[in-house]
Design a protein around this nucleic acid. Structure first.
Length: 469
RNA sequence: GUCCCCAUCGUCUAGAGGCCUAGGACACCAGCCUUUCACGUUGGUAACACGGGUUCGAAUCCCGUUGGGGACGCCA
C-alpha cells in the first residue's frame, strides 16, 4: 500500500513555523516513499475558523514549496459522514447517548479536581435508559471506552518517533464524538477523515500524543486499522517556553517578509529535530532521499534565528542572480525607492558581489539601493566624516582622470592600482573616499565592481558631487 | 493534581557499550586573507543534569531524583 500522509492545520490563524515543520516532515516522508502528501483544513470550529486564515495557510505552504498533491479536504464539508459514523457506533452498541448539560460536566470536573482525582467523565449515562432523560435535552453521543474485567488493560501505540507508549484503560473516559448540536468533535472527525482519506502515517506535533489513545479507541470500535503514528517534538522559543510572537517571527509569511528564502527556512526546519551525521546543508532533493522518521529526535528544540540567518546567507549566495535582483527590486519599490530600468540593470550587474555580502533579502535590498537610484546616494554620518578636504581633493582629481579610464572591471582595478602607485598612495586611501562617494557607505562590493556597474557618467557625477560637497 | 513525553557545548546536533582525550554547525573570541565589508581559512572558549545500579568497560542499558515540555473541553 502506498504511503499517504497529511498535514491538518486548523484555520484559526496564520501558519505557525512549527506547523510548517510538521508539513515539511509529512511532505518529505511521503516523497521519500513515493507516496502522496495531502492537506486537510480542520475547520470544524466555526467560531474561530476564517477564510482569510485558509488563504494564508495555502499561501504559506505554496511559498515553502509544500503544496499538497491533491486538492485540500475541508473537514467541515464532511460533517454528515462524521455523524453517520457516530450513529453507526451508537447502533453497534459502542457508543451511547449522554444527556448531561455543560454545567453538570463542569461541576463534575471541578469536583474531581477538588478531590484530587483526574477530571474524567464518570460514564453516568453509559448504562442508563435514554427514556430517563430529562425532557427537552438533546443528547451528545459518547464513545464507550474499554472497561476490561480485570481493570488492567491498556492501549499500546508503537510511535515511529517516540517509541512504544502505553496508557492504561483506567486513564481513558467516554469521550464525546458527536455534540448535542450534531457536529462532530475534533477527535472523532480526525479519525473518520484519516480513515476515509486512507492516510497510512499520521505525522504531527507531540502535543497530540495523548490524543492518540482516544483516537485509537475510535479506530478499534469501528474495527478500522489504525494508521502508523509519528509524534514529532514541538519547537520552542529561545528561552525554552512555547514559541510565541514575543520570541520573534513565528508566522511562515513573516519569514518571507523579513527576507528569508523558503529553501533556507525548510533546511533550517529540517535540521531542527532531524539529523543525518554532520550534514548541515540539505537541499530539498537530498532531504527527500535521506529523510527517515527514525532519525527524528525526541526532544523539543529551540528556535535559533542566528542559525537560520546564517543558513539563509548560504542559500542566498547560491541563489540565481536574476531571481535575487527581482526580489530586491520589489523590496526597493515597496520601500518607496525610485529607480528606473538602468537602476535595475545595475542591481543585476552587481548581484554576484552584492549577494556575497548579505544574509537576507531585506539586507540585500539595503545594500543594493545605492546602485538602483540615480544621482548621489544618501550618506551616513560615518561616511560623511571620511570626506575630509584632502579626500575631496583626491576625488576631484580622480574624477578628472577617470574620464579617460578604461571602463571594464579588471581594467579599472589595474587602473586604480596604477593611480595609487603613481600618487604614492595605498590603495585603501584611494578606494575608501571613492566608496563613500559612490555608495554613501564605508562598506560595499569591491570598488572596481561598483565603478563598472554604475557606468562612467553616473560614477563621475557622484564623485564630483562628493568632491564639491 | 493525574497521566504521557523528554534530557550531550549558550543553541541545533553526531553518538545504537570499547572507535570519545565526546565530533560537526551556529553564535562568541583571536589570527590569516584583503581596497571596505562580507566570504573563505586557521586556532580557541564551551557539553554527556544528578545519584545509584548492570558490565572487564557506559554519553550510550536499567532504576530513582531533579529539571523541562505536553495532555487532561459538547477547542482544534
Amino acid at each position: 500500500m502506498s504511503v499517504r500522509t497529511r498535514f491538518a492545520p486548523s484555520p484559526t490563524g496564520y501558519l505557525h513555523i512549527g506547523g510548517a515543520r510538521t508539513a515539511l516532515f509529512n511532505y518529505l516522508f511521503a516523497r521519500h516513499h513515493n507516496g502522496q502528501y495531502l492537506l486537510r483544513i480542520e475547520d470544524t470550529d466555526k467560531q474561530r475558523s476564517t477564510p482569510e486564515a485558509v488563504r494564508q495557510i495555502l499561501e504559506s505552504l505554496d511559498w515553502l514549496g509544500l503544496g499538497p498533491d491533491e486538492p485540500p479536504v475541508f473537514q467541515s464539508a464532511r460533517e454528515a459522514r462524521h455523524a453517520e459514523v457516530a450513529r453507526e457506533l451508537l447502533a453497534r452498541g459502542r457508543a451511547y447517548l449522554a444527556f448531561d448539560t455543560p454545567e453538570e460536566l463542569a461541576a463534575m470536573r471541578e469536583q474531581a479536581m477538588k478531590e484530587g482525582r483526574p477530571p474524567r467523565y464518570d460514564g453516568r449515562w453509559r448504562d442508563r435508559d435514554p427514556a430517563e432523560a430529562p425532557p427537552g435535552r438533546t443528547p451528545a453521543i459518547r464513545l464507550k471506552a474499554p472497561r476490561p474485567e480485570d481493570g488492567r488493560g491498556e492501549i499500546v501505540v508503537k510511535d515511529l518517533v517516540q517509541g512504544e507508549v502505553r496508557v492504561a484503560h483506567a486513564e481513558l473516559d467516554d469521550l464525546i464524538i458527536l455534540r448535542s448540536d450534531g457536529t462532530p468533535t475534533y477527535l472523532h472527525a480526525v479519525v473518520v477523515d484519516d480513515h476515509d482519506m486512507a492516510i497510512t502515517h499520521v505525522i504531527r506535533g507531540d502535543d497530540h500524543l495523548t490524543n492518540t489513545f482516544r483516537q485509537c479507541m475510535i479506530y478499534d470500535a469501528m474495527g478500522w486499522h489504525r494508521p502508523h503514528f509519528a509524534h514529532i517534538p514541538l519547537i520552542h522559543g529561545a528561552d525554552g517556553a512555547k514559541l510565541s510572537k514575543r520570541h520573534g517571527a513565528v508566522g511562515a509569511l513573516e519569514f518571507r517578509e523579513q527576507g528569508f528564502l523558503p529553501e533556507a527556512v525548510c533546511n533550517y526546519l529540517l535540521r531542527l529535530g532531524w539529523g543525518h551525521g554532520d550534514e548541515e546543508i540539505v537541499p530539498r532533493d537530498r532531504a527527500i532521499a535521506l529523510f527517515d522518521l527514525k532519525d527524528v529526535g525526541r526532544a523539543a528544540s529551540r528556535m535559533d534565528y542566528a542559525k537560520l540567518t546564517h543558513l539563509n546567507g548560504v542559500y542566498l549566495r547560491q541563489a540565481d542572480d536574476d531571481r535575487l535582483a527581482e526580489e530586491v527590486l520589489e523590496r526597493l519599490a515597496k520601500h518607496g525607492i525610485d529607480f528606473g530600468t538602468i537602476g535595475g540593470d545595475r542591481v543585476r550587474a552587481l548581484m554576484p558581489e552584492l549577494k556575497a555580502r548579505a544574509k537576507t533579502l531585506e539586507e540585500l535590498a539595503g545594500t543594493a539601493a545605492f546602485a538602483a537610484i540615480e544621482g548621489p546616494p544618501p550618506m551616513d554620518a560615518k561616511s560623511a566624516a571620511l570626506l575630509t578636504p584632502e579626500a575631496k581633493a583626491r576625488l576631484a582629481d580622480l574624477a578628472q582622470f577617470l574620464t579617460d579610464a578604461p571602463w571594464e572591471r579588471l581594467e579599472l582595478e589595474r587602473w586604480l592600482r596604477d593611480y595609487a602607485e603613481v600618487k604614492g598612495l595605498k590603495l585603501g586611501a584611494v578606494a575608501q573616499p571613492l566608496r563613500v562617494a559612490l555608495t554613501g557607505s564605508t562598506q560595499s562590493p569591491p570598488i572596481d565592481a561598483v565603478l563598472a556597474a554604475l557606468g562612467r557618467t553616473e560614477a563621475v557625477d557622484r564623485i564630483l558631487a562628493a568632491a564639491e560637497e
